[in-house]
Amino acid sequence: MPDGAATPPDPSALIAAVAARYAGASRFTRGYVGSKLRRDPSTAAILALAGRAGGLGHVADLGCGRGQLALALLLSGAASRVTGLDYEGAKVAEARAAGAGLAADFARADLTAAEVPDCDTVLMVDVLYQLPEAAQAPLLACIAGAARRRAVLRLFDPERGWRSRFGMAMEHAGRAIRGDGAAVRPMRVAEVAAPLEAAGFRCTVSPCWAGTPLPNVLLVAERGA
């Protein structure tokens, strides 16, 4: 399905095709890739968005991890090209190996300092709130300048009542287990939207937590006609 087509891909076949590209990766990664694409509601939400939009064009995936979502967009025809950036070199190496032969470029980058590449769509899933508080607003400004058509951000919404309290408890527990002392300071969704709207984007926000107790929402910022 070329970029621009609206026919939705078969989810099971697509996930199998993506997972097959990680055949040479570790056992953990092979299991993780398929599970993440199947279970994370952002997969279906972003693929559906791409179908409605007629494709996302060149996608810059910030915090791409192992690259499975970027490759799903490519293999489904929802993206014409992907550029993935992530801080963890081992994950970037796995993404590169899996993306061999496709219109995919993955590189190690520190999102608190890296330049966001010019693209049609900036994609950032579960990344912004994990960055230092002082780095979040500058990155949003870079995204607003780099995205020609849209930005798609899955955010931790700190104003979702019990969901936010549960999500924060999970984040603190995870950091305690990993020995990660980084603070968790998610921006209010309105604060995330403000610089994008000031740059000429129209923002819509919808729940993206299907079947989970988490406070995740999908913010889609699109350029005005």
Rank of each mutant, 00 (worst) to 15 (best):
D61Q: 09
L14T: 07
K91Y: 12
T112N: 00
R66K: 14
L49I: 08
R154M: 03
D86S: 07
L85F: 08
G174V: 10
R175I: 07
R148S: 09
C203M: 06
L131I: 08
D105G: 11
A78V: 07
A103W: 01
E171C: 12
G67L: 06
D126A: 15
C208L: 13
A95H: 05
D40I: 00
A45C: 02
T212C: 04
R175H: 14
P11N: 12
A78Y: 01
G67C: 06
E115T: 15
R39F: 04
P117S: 04
T43W: 03
V82C: 15
L62T: 00
Y129R: 06
D157N: 15
P186H: 12
A134S: 12
A97P: 00
R223S: 05
R39D: 14
A193C: 12
R165E: 12
L69T: 01
L102T: 05
D126Q: 14
R66S: 12
F156R: 01
A50F: 05
R188L: 08
M187Y: 04
L102H: 07
M1T: 14
R38P: 00
S80C: 10
G174P: 08
S26Q: 03
R96S: 08
R154S: 12
A225P: 15
Y87R: 15
D61M: 06
T121G: 09
A5M: 06
R223Y: 11
I143W: 01
A134E: 14
G224R: 14
V189W: 02
L196H: 08
G31N: 11
F106Q: 04
T29C: 13
R38L: 00
A72Y: 02
G167C: 07
L85R: 04
G179A: 05
G57L: 09
V116A: 10
F166T: 05
G67E: 01
G181V: 07
V82Y: 03
A44H: 03
C142I: 02
M170T: 10
S12L: 11
T204M: 05
A169R: 15
E222A: 15
P132H: 08
E159R: 15
A183T: 14
D10Q: 10
I15F: 08
G34W: 00
L56H: 03
G67A: 07
V220E: 05
A48W: 03
G54D: 00
S35F: 01
A72L: 13
A25H: 12
D105R: 15
P207S: 09
E191G: 10
M187S: 10
D10C: 08
G63C: 09
I143E: 01
T43F: 04
R96G: 14
V220P: 05
G200K: 10
P132L: 06
G24C: 11
A53I: 04
G174H: 12
R27F: 00
L47Y: 03
D157M: 07
L128M: 08
S206H: 10
A45P: 02
A103Q: 11
